[in-house]
């Protein structure tokens, strides 16, 4: 089953800055895998519910109790860039 991927759009969604040559290579490879994967569409699944958890379980809750937080210095020591007590990032173009 042929699969046609808009690889540039997918790469943008996934925040991967790939050049044209890389995009083309990944497009080809992904299409081969997806054509194999698309075989799942051959299996009739009418009325079959999807499984998102292998073992059925419900209601795993935690009590509303405050627990210890991390030490701020330990956290910020891993930051690629910080400004005082904050993580610093380059300018944000859009509001989410």
């Amino acid at each position: 089953m042929p699969v046609d991927i808009d690889i540039a759009k997918v790469a943008r969604l996934a925040r991967l800055a790939l050049d044209d040559e890389e995009l083309e290579r990944y497009r080809q490879q992904c299409e081969v895998v997806l054509e194999h994967a698309a075989r799942v569409q051959a299996l009739p699944t009418d009325g079959v519910p999807p499984t998102s958890h292998p073992l059925p379980r419900t209601n795993a809750f935690r009590d509303d109790v405050v627990t210890e937080c991390l030490d701020r210095e330990e956290v910020l020591s891993q930051a690629p860039e910080r400004d005082g007590d904050y993580f610093l990032v380059p300018r944000i173009l859009d509001e989410a």
């Binding site: 925040r15 800055a17 930051a79 860039e81 993580f87 300018r91 173009l93």
Partner: peptide
């Protein structure tokens, strides 16, 4: 690239992440 690990520069946050 915000809280830990590698960061490569970018003109804005989206470029930095990508």
């Amino acid at each position: 690239g915000v809280r830990y690990g590698l960061r490569r520069l970018g003109e804005n946050v989206e470029e930095m992440m990508s």
